[in-house]
Amino acid sequence: MRLASKSVLIFFIAFDLFTLGLHLVLADHAYLGTFVDIHKEGNFPTWYSSLKFTIVSGVAFFCYYLERQSKVVSNSSWGWIVVGCVMLSMSLDETGQLHETLIHWFFSTDSGKNLALYFNAQKGAFSLLWVVVFSPFLIAILGGLIYFYNNRLKGKRVLLLGAFGAIFLLTAAAVMEYYEAKLLISENVFDDSFLGVYKTFSAIEEMLENFASSMLVWIHYSYVMWFANRSN
């Protein structure tokens, strides 16, 4: 069982690196570039990331089902539903670019204009400033995840550390997105060196998100396996 859990992690991390490799090798390709470029939306890396969040979400719902069935662990099982919904919304957001749509609408309002003024933001930076607008919610979600995983994974030191690691990676990705926005806001945005830094930031941010979702798949899967073994 343990080997199987590790294999899941190794498989997904290896696949993450494979998508990075595809990006590095083929991103500038005339026909395939759009399909593998991790800076772009609606392509293979996006669907892959979305698939992982869907798996994480599905397994979370399954955890809820398992716990409710076994009645061994009954307190705060509903947390899995919340986690499942959060992960499902992340999956939908990956493919549907929901936060981009929302934030563009927000920037057409007076409040959005004030935000743009505060950050000296031009249009290009809008979609990245969602981190600022949603920061209270993001903090609440990240805090909630830490609380829940700490509660659920106590005694499972490796999984707990893995969960905290995944949350840390997601937080780092959000922070990097904020700094990408700051880079785009910079008047030096047309300098080649700045564009290079921006693209590096963007690639790192996407990979952090990828590693985090892979770790969450592993953690949720491992929890299911542990729970099934325990019930047996």
Binding site: D110, S111, G112, N114, L115, L117, Y118, V132, V133, S135, P136, F137, I139, A140, L142, G143, G144, I146, Y147, N150
Partner: peptide
Amino acid sequence: AIIFLTILCAMFAGYWVWNIVAG
């Protein structure tokens, strides 16, 4: 402690964002 810190940080971020969007 996590709940306390989360609420504190979220409130602080909310206050900051609210002030910005209110101009």
